Simulated assay, not measured.
Amino acid sequence: MSELKTVGVLLVNTGTPDAPKPRAVRKYLARFLSDPRICPMPKVPWWFILHLCILPKRGRVSAKKYAKIWTRDGSPFTIVHEKLMRGLQAQYDAEKAPVIVRVAMDYSKPFVADKLAELQSLGCDRVVVLPLYPQSALSTTGSVKDHVRHALEKLNWNVDTCIIDNYHDNPTYIRAIAASIKHAGFDVDSNDKLLFSYHSIPLNDVEQGDTYELQTGASSLLIASELGLDRVRWTIGYQCRFDKSRKWVSPYTKDVLKRLAEHSDARLFMVCPNFAVDCLETLYDIDYEFKPMYFDDMIEAGRTVDEDCFHYVPCLDKSKAHVQVLYSVLEPYVMEK
């Protein structure tokens, strides 16, 4: 039997500013919004619009939002990823598997290139990259693929590399999301409603072959089926539209919330299955924007408001269930066939 090769597992997500300060946020957003897969127009005019119009305002506004979710130990996004990495590493260590786990970000430290260089220095024979986007998109998983390819070329490292495209229908993932919904208090035997809210993408990406929308629908159906829900108990919305100059995948979450506030007297549970870890779009947007908006719409519709009307289901974050999801997704790839 041949000796097992050392496998480097690289978990990759979007990133976070170094601090909840305008300068740090501008620096982070500049990297993110300069990605060719993100920017909505040719590079030169976009550079001027981005640096002269968007970043000065967004840096200030977003810094205030980040300050609301920042912890004493730093970015919650960074903290959770580090704990998730250690949890997955512990799983492999317990099995004495020759696997080294690292975490990297597309647009902030630790960068993909730096962590690949570390895996190279540690003598990895193979690399398995897992973008932490259960539903892949050209603008997310596609960007990870770009950064990995460029980093490997720069390192001149011709290593056997596999990039996992998505895990939207992985059974362990589906069961974990369903269990988290139940754990949040959702009663499958009541009239509770469930809103799946996903990050939106430009319709132009869909027209160019992006299957993200199909994956979000498939994940929602599988999770609802795992819970035993019929179709009238759940719906889908899309949040985080970046600009109004382009058409984006809809219906928008804010519109779905308004409709539910006006026409449903059931408790509402909102879950965001495409976010592996809670971030600004969940920690801030839901508590400070969507929830108050929903309550205002309820009042306008003449409904009585109380805290039990709306529940957010947290992401899997650093939970043991999340570690098991990632282990399950990686299992077919980490050991040499």
Rank of each mutant, 00 (worst) to 15 (best):
L33I: 07
I38R: 02
T14N: 05
A19C: 06
L122S: 12
P134Y: 07
L330Y: 04
R102S: 04
L152M: 12
V127F: 00
L50W: 04
D317I: 12
K193T: 06
L326C: 09
D169Y: 07
K115N: 10
Y198L: 11
L52V: 10
D114I: 01
A218Y: 02
C272Y: 00
A218C: 09
D187N: 14
T235S: 12
L11E: 00
L84F: 03
C240G: 09
H147T: 08
K254A: 13
T141C: 10
H183K: 13
G74E: 05
I54G: 06
E118K: 08
A94Y: 00
V256F: 02
V325S: 02
I236Q: 09
K64S: 13
V61M: 11
M1I: 15
R23V: 13
R60E: 14
K57V: 15
K83I: 06
A63I: 10
W234Y: 14
K254G: 06
I174H: 03
A113H: 11
D308I: 12
V256A: 03
C53L: 15
W234D: 02
Y252T: 05
D125Y: 05
Y167W: 12
L55C: 10
F32K: 04
T211Q: 08
R23S: 13
A178F: 07
V144S: 01
T211F: 04
P20M: 06
D187A: 12
Y66S: 08
K64V: 12
L10Q: 00
A179T: 11
P36W: 03
P273L: 06
Y28H: 05
V61N: 11
N170M: 06
H322L: 12
S197T: 09
P17M: 10
D243I: 14
H150E: 14
G59K: 02
Y133A: 02
K65G: 10
G74A: 10
E153L: 14
M105G: 03
A63N: 06
K247W: 05
S139R: 03
T14H: 02
T78F: 14
Y198F: 15
H51M: 06
V101Q: 01
D317T: 11
L138V: 14
D146T: 09
A176Y: 03
I299M: 12
H199S: 06
P314H: 06
F32R: 01
Q239C: 11
D114A: 12
Q89F: 07
D165F: 06
Q120W: 04
S319R: 10
R303F: 07
M293Y: 14
V334D: 00
D165N: 14
E281R: 08
V7T: 15
V249N: 02
M298W: 02
M105A: 05
G15Y: 00
D73N: 12
A261F: 01
K68R: 15
I163Q: 04
Q239S: 08
D35L: 04
V25R: 01
P45I: 11
S220C: 06
S245F: 12
L214M: 09
A184D: 05
A184W: 04
S62E: 06
P110R: 01
A113S: 15
I201M: 01
L84C: 04
K244N: 12
D210Q: 04
P202F: 03
K27Y: 08
I54Y: 03
L283M: 14
Y92T: 01
G8E: 00
D296S: 15
